[in-house]
Simulated scan of single mutants.
Amino acid sequence: MGNASRGFEELVDEAAAVSVEGWDFSWLEGRATEERPSWGYRREMSRRLAGASAALDIQTGGGEVLAGAEKMPSVMVATESWPPNVAKATALLHPRGVVVVADDDEPPLPFADAAFDLVTSRHPVTVWWEEIARVLRPGGTYFSQQVGPASVFELVEFFLGPQPEEVRRARHPEDARRAAEKAGLDVVDVTAESLRTEFFDIGAVVYFLRKVIWMVPGFTVEEYRDRLRELDALIRREGAFVAHTTRFLMEARKPGGGSSDGGGA
C-alpha cells in the first residue's frame, strides 16, 4: 500500500528508528489495519465514566484512551508502570484533572479499600482480581477490554514456530470469568471476537513487534533479519500478511450497595 517500491533495508531501518513510546499506533496508518471490535470500548468507557463519582483506570499507557472520555468523574486516577508512559500520560491527562500514579503493577494497588465505584482497563498485561475487588465499592463496576488467546499468533508463530497449547490458550475469557468470580465479583458480561489484521509492508511488522514487546520477546531486527526477509518477500508476493487479533470485553460488579454509579450494561 504505497511502499512496494521501497527496499527491504529502507523499510526496516525506518521502522527500527522511529519512537515506540506511548500507545498511539498512528504511525501504522496506511501500513497496517486492524478490524475494530463491534462493542466500541472507548464509547462505552466514556459513558460509564460520565456516571461515576470516583474512577480508576489501570495500566493507562500514555493516557490516549482515557483522554478520549467526554466527561471525567470528580475523582479520576490512572496508574501506569513504564516511566516514559507515566510522563506522557501525566502531560496528556493532568489538564483534564486526572492524577497519574506511577505504580509497579504489582499488588497491592496504592489505594484504600472501596475507593472507587468504577475501575476500567484497556488491554491490561496482568489483572490482579483480588485488588480490583478490594478497591471497588460495593455495587461498583469493573469494565475492561482485554487481549484474548492466541492473538496475532500467525505473526508470532512465523517467528517463533508452533506454540504449545497452554501458550495458545493463555488469556482465555473463561479463565478471566473464573478468576473474577473467585475474587468475589459477579460477572455481568463477557463478549469475545476475532478480528482481521493486515500488515502491508515489513516496516509495519518491525514497528509492531518493537512496540508490542511481548509478542516476540526480545525481538530485534538483527536477531530475526533472515525471517524478516522471508516475510518481506511473502508480503510483496501476496500484498499483505494476514493475522487475527482476539479481544474480549468484560464487565463485572462487586456485590452489594445497590446499583453502581459507574455501572450499567
Rank of each mutant, 00 (worst) to 15 (best):
G2H: 02
G2D: 08
N3H: 14
N3Y: 15
A4W: 03
A4C: 06
L11K: 07
E14R: 07
A16V: 00
A17H: 04
A17C: 06
E21Q: 10
G22Q: 10
D24N: 07
F25T: 08
S26I: 05
S26Y: 07
W27D: 09
W27V: 14
L28P: 13
G30Y: 01
T33A: 13
E34Q: 15
E35S: 11
P37D: 08
S38L: 06
G40F: 15
G40I: 15
G40R: 12
R42T: 12
R43D: 15
S46W: 05
S46E: 08
A52K: 00
S53V: 11
I58P: 03
T60E: 01
G62Q: 03
G63Q: 12
E64V: 02
A69N: 08
E70Q: 08
E70S: 15
S74G: 09
S74A: 12
V75F: 04
E80K: 04
P83H: 04
V86K: 04
V86D: 05
V86Y: 02
A87I: 11
K88E: 06
K88F: 01
T90W: 04
L92M: 09
H94P: 07
H94I: 14
H94R: 15
P95M: 00
V100T: 02
V101L: 05
D103E: 12
D104C: 08
L109Q: 01
P110H: 03
A115W: 03
A115Q: 06
F116C: 01
F116L: 03
L118V: 12
V119N: 10
T120V: 15
S121V: 01
V125L: 11
W128P: 10
E130M: 00
E130D: 13
A133H: 12
A133K: 10
R134V: 03
R134S: 01
R137P: 00
P138F: 08
P138W: 07
P138N: 09
G139E: 00
G140T: 06
T141M: 13
T141R: 11
S144W: 01
S144Q: 02
Q146E: 14
S151C: 14
V152E: 14
E154V: 05
E154M: 03
L155P: 06
E157M: 07
F159L: 13
G161Q: 02
G161I: 02
P162A: 02
Q163C: 04
P164H: 02
E165R: 05
V167A: 10
R169C: 09
R169K: 06
R169S: 10
R169Y: 05
A170H: 03
R171T: 03
P173Y: 01
P173T: 00
R178Q: 11
A180R: 07
E181Q: 09
G184P: 06
G184W: 07
L185E: 01
L185D: 05
D186Y: 05
V188E: 13
D189F: 06
V190W: 08
S194D: 08
T197R: 11
E198C: 15
F200K: 04
D201Y: 06
I202V: 09
V206G: 07
Y207C: 15
Y207Q: 14
L209I: 14
V212A: 06
I213R: 15
W214I: 11
T220G: 07
A233V: 13
L234Q: 11
R236N: 10
R236V: 01
E238V: 15
V242R: 12
T245D: 15
F248M: 07
M250N: 02
E251H: 04
A252I: 13
R253D: 01
G256N: 08
G257I: 01
S259D: 14
S260P: 11
D261C: 11
D261F: 14
